[in-house]
Design a protein around this nucleic acid. Structure first.
Lengths: 202, 202, 202, 202
DNA sequence: GATGAATGAGGATTCATTCAT
DNA sequence: TATGAATGAATCCTCATTCAT
């Protein structure tokens, strides 16, 4: 049991190593330009080894996203659940994403830029990823709907409002990712949240 | 001269045919999945002929975007120039994009989803496209700055405000492109513009 | 028209070149050990060119066999049709195969040894090849049946008799292909035919 | 000694298990399509273990054949030795093979179809297998030669006569293996033997 | 001995680009 | 100028074999 447990740990660890390497390389080169061997090299393993853990390049990609997407979703849920008001919920939605970005830049680079684009095209990739990609907005929309019903905020279309928050957040992150133009300050986030709140308040 | 002029016209026309075909195919399949022969076929020419007009697949892609990006930029400039107030400027910014989208869905599908993603990656693609992609926001930012200076709107960070408008617009278009979920109504646009104005007003 | 005709000829010729090369290489190495590049090299073309003419390695293999299998079938039909008696039919059946073998050793090496083996395994390859592989025997069986009905030969099971002839023929060819042991003389054929006739006569 | 003997027995037993598994899998999938792991799994051992008993996939293949080829050869020798006349020898040659086939279909599927094809190709595989594959015929040829010398049968070329018997036998077995067309009856064998005898009698 | 995780050479296939006609 | 046949580098994936445990 000791051995099998250790093995299992090692195996899980290796899987994580691969996913970490995959995020690094996919973030640097994008899906199409990434060669499976690059990922293996980055992970310090042989090409064939990768195929012991994942059945295809595409599955590596999706798994690399899925793991972080789940975590982000969980953190979002936690943060929103604790938020006493719709304003707090909104602010936390943005903050969770921006702080997750600090720690997982590679993930968000793929998730926010390339994966969104891939979703636009026809081929279905991963049902769960699709769902997670929309769950954050849906959660926020629920909070907005409840607040609007209680007359705490403007009786706006809650879905559309949540979409707006999501898009602005994406913009903030992309701006950080780009690194172009004016450097992005922490104040920018506060300002964006403030504007969004104003837009939605009574 | 007549002949050479005619030839030139013909040649330009063919170039346009190719770019139109390219937009169609790239929008349908995305950059990676598009095969050069698909474009040639869609354009009704031979594969080799395409290479008389463009040096590479990538250049076709960029040219296909550049043309429309310039038009969109010109229309934006015109619309914003005529706008009497910052609110009008904001509304027109959004409307120009959404109406351009109606007529050039293929272009915007590539521009808003895939190209943005490609920009994120390291390799520089087209300086002009980069610039155009930001010019709209910059223009809007200038109007905002002027209006704020005149005390007509909140003394917000104009660049950040323009970014917000840009991101929300992108969200509206993506939602139309997706075709998922609730169908998008014209009212959504009005609502979004209204929210953005509220966010920025004094 | 001249050009397109010429082109067509050239294209057909190239197809034949590839098939010829394929037969050579497949006969030398067998299907599994043959690498597509080997065939291309033998044909004096690039690897990619081969894929302009055939969609896969397997299809090259089948096409290489099919062409000759059809010719062999046609020759068999012609020879058997002219045969006045069942004895002549039997002799010609054997002779056609042995003389075809002289001119198309590569084909028969694949057809008689490897392809038969592949047929045994489950995966369906080419319905026409299967049919052709059995048509010769079937034709002979018909002749035998007719002759038996007329009392010209032993009232044997005609199918089994034809199978026997087919198997002995295959043995003669394999012996030539092997090149082991005693060299095979023309007299061997005559002797085999003689024995088969004796086995079947009244 | 007891232990080492037991070990040896165990080891031999395991070797047999592997060979049995190999025959099963090779017969089902053919050499090329068989993956070493399939054999190990069928044998209920680890992949690495297989390599403790055999140095390569090819050697497993050959060993799987060799064992049964030896047995078949031994049975043939026994049966032929007891046969009082050339007719009995012939009949027993056929019968031994057909009854061996009943009990060892997997072996004969490989031996009669695939292995024969592999022999045709250049690379030498196993000298003993080659020899065994011909020994049966050689034995029969000796009996024929003796009988012919005694004037008991037609003064035919004994080798060629034996080849004929061998080929017809192979045909009977292949027909059973195929399972196509008319089902094969026991009478077919009797008929084939009868025909062969007629072909060879005085 | 037994195992199965790790490896990387090898192979089928694709496709951007060239170039002879 | 227009063409599309030809090319081969590049890529994903498989699997026989090895070796640390």
């Amino acid at each position: 049991m000791g051995i099998s447990l250790r093995r299992k740990e090692t195996s899980e660890r290796r899987r994580d190593t691969i996913l970490h390497a995959a995020r690094t390389v996919f973030a640097r080169k994008g899906y199409a330009a990434t060669v499976v061997e690059d990922i293996a090299e980055e992970a310090g393993i042989g090409k064939g080894t990768l195929y012991l853990y994942f059945p295809s390049k595409e599955q590596v990609y999706l798994a690399a996203l899925l793991e972080d997407a789940r975590t982000l979703d969980a953190e979002s849920r936690g943060a929103l659940a604790e938020a006493p008001s719709w304003r707090d919920a909104l602010r936390r939605y943005v903050e969770v994403r921006l702080s997750y970005f600090e720690a997982h830049e590679d993930f968000l680079r793929i998730y926010m830029t390339e994966f969104r684009g891939m979703c636009m095209q026809g081929r279905p990739l991963s049902a769960e990823l699709y769902r997670l990609a929309q769950d954050g907005e849906a959660l926020l929309a629920q909070r907005f709907a409840a607040a609007a019903a209680r007359g705490e905020m403007r009786a706006a279309d809650p879905e559309l409002a949540a979409l707006m928050v999501s898009d602005v957040t994406r913009g903030l992150i992309e701006r950080r990712l780009r690194g172009w133009g004016r450097p992005v300050s922490a104040g920018d986030t506060a300002f964006a949240v403030d504007m969004l709140c104003r837009a939605l308040e009574r």
